[in-house]
Design a binder for these strands. Sequence first.
DNA 1: CCCTGATTCGC
DNA 2: GCGAATCAGG
Length: 231
Amino acid sequence: MSWTDERIESLRTMWEKGLTASQIADELGGVSRNAVIGKAHRLGLKSRPSPVKAAEKAKPAVKAAPATPKPASPPPAPRAAASVAPRPVAPTMAPAPRPATDAPSDDAAPADAAPPRPDTPRIVSIGPGGFIRQGPGDQQAPIPPAPPRRMVPAKPSPEMASKTSLLDLNDRICRWPMGHPGEPDFHFCGVAVNPGFPYCVEHCGRAYQAQLPRGTRRPPPPPPFGGPRVR
DNA sequence: CCCTGATTCGC
DNA sequence: GCGAATCAGG
């Protein structure tokens, strides 16, 4: 198989859509996963979260410095070269004090997660028998605030946000499948059902065909999922 | 072991 | 330019 414009086109689309190289290769057919990756790179559309590159974090050798300390910083000669800056290179450099930044980005500090607790020292007194005496106003709320929002599964992608996923199905919305199962944009029709049926009016018309007299020829109805996949 | 993407290198 | 072989992390 050769890389025709069409195949390159769909490769681009699928790659940017986030499909894995295997899926793309499977979809295109006639090419291997490696071929897809190679082509994608040659097209310049690389850079997707790769399991290997993801481990790129700490450049400076942290642990025991290797026996060969790399000078490796010759380039920009200082312009005002009045004095030769002596470069004290200690061969056995102690590891540079690293400001413990394990988390790559701690930008989001949820404000409501940790409400400021003044922790004001409170005067308590122990009563006879070991009771803790509480003054009026010392009572703390016995019931923790209930989570106000119902947990809801996150949509895998923004473009799916408006689509009806499997988890969204109920008795009142049309379950007619749109697209192919397993594909990223697979979803369900989702409009109000024809009462008493699992599908909306339009899709009921597709799902339930009136029995016609024998011998009546009519084009076969398109099956769900748009017909068998060709691989 | 399976999966993933990245890279290399002979063609 | 192509892609199998290889690498390396999850």
